[in-house]
């Protein structure tokens, strides 16, 4: 798909919970679908989070900011796909489950870790109002902004291999040409 700044920028959805699992991101009953687009209406349908309404809160979102161990549980790549077909290509969290994190980069999407303090800072400053994120892939920075709030720029890092996958648009082509 080829990564651009736009791919990883946009309106931010804050999910204030640890351990959001892939059954919550996309329930197993939808795993009988054999196209990614069919998953679109069901993203986060079973999320256990007070005040969260998927129909209201997901539309027009491009980025998720959440807490710890996002994507734990089932290995289903349907979780990143359900995000992708909803236009969400970037999840920022304190940390991720191994398989979910790998699936994101394998699809050319990004799962980026920030420190617990930085995540807390984002929640306290930006989670109450509409917040947008501008990602600069060259400078490796996130800039968060919200009306009436001072914007915040944070540096981030991903490994060279993760970057290779994002730039290649995923693991299949890279692996087939390399091994």
């Amino acid at each position: 798909m080829g990564a651009t700044h736009e791919t990883f920028s946009g309106k931010v959805l804050f999910l204030d919970r640890d351990d959001i699992n892939t059954d919550e991101i996309i329930p197993a009953k939808y795993l009988t679908e054999i196209t990614k687009t069919a998953l679109k209406p069901y993203l986060l349908e079973d999320l256990k989070l007070e005040g969260f309404d998927p129909a209201r809160d997901i539309s027009d979102t491009q980025v998720i900011v959440t807490r710890s161990n996002f994507g734990c549980g089932s290995s289903r790549e349907h979780a990143p796909w359900a995000l992708e077909v909803n236009g969400i290509n970037l999840v920022i969290a304190q940390d991720f489950s191994r398989i979910f994190r790998q699936n994101m980069y394998n699809c050319g999407m990004m799962a980026v870790e920030l420190s617990a303090e930085q995540i807390e800072q984002l929640f306290s400053r930006f989670s109450q109002g509409p917040c947008t994120l501008r990602t600069d892939l060259a400078a490796m920075t996130f800039t968060f902004s919200s009306t009436g709030r001072e914007s915040l720029t944070l540096p981030f890092s991903i490994s060279g291999f993760d970057r290779t996958l994002v730039e290649a648009g995923g693991w299949v082509e890279f692996a087939d040409s390399s091994y």
């Binding site: 290995s75 790549e77 790998q102 699936n103 394998n106 693991w171 299949v172 087939d176």
Partner: peptide, 14 residues
């Protein structure tokens, strides 16, 4: 180890 579909796909292929 459990993996996602893309890792599986590369496993099948390579």
């Amino acid at each position: 180890a459990g993996v996602g579909t893309t890792d599986l796909e590369v496993g099948i292929l390579k």
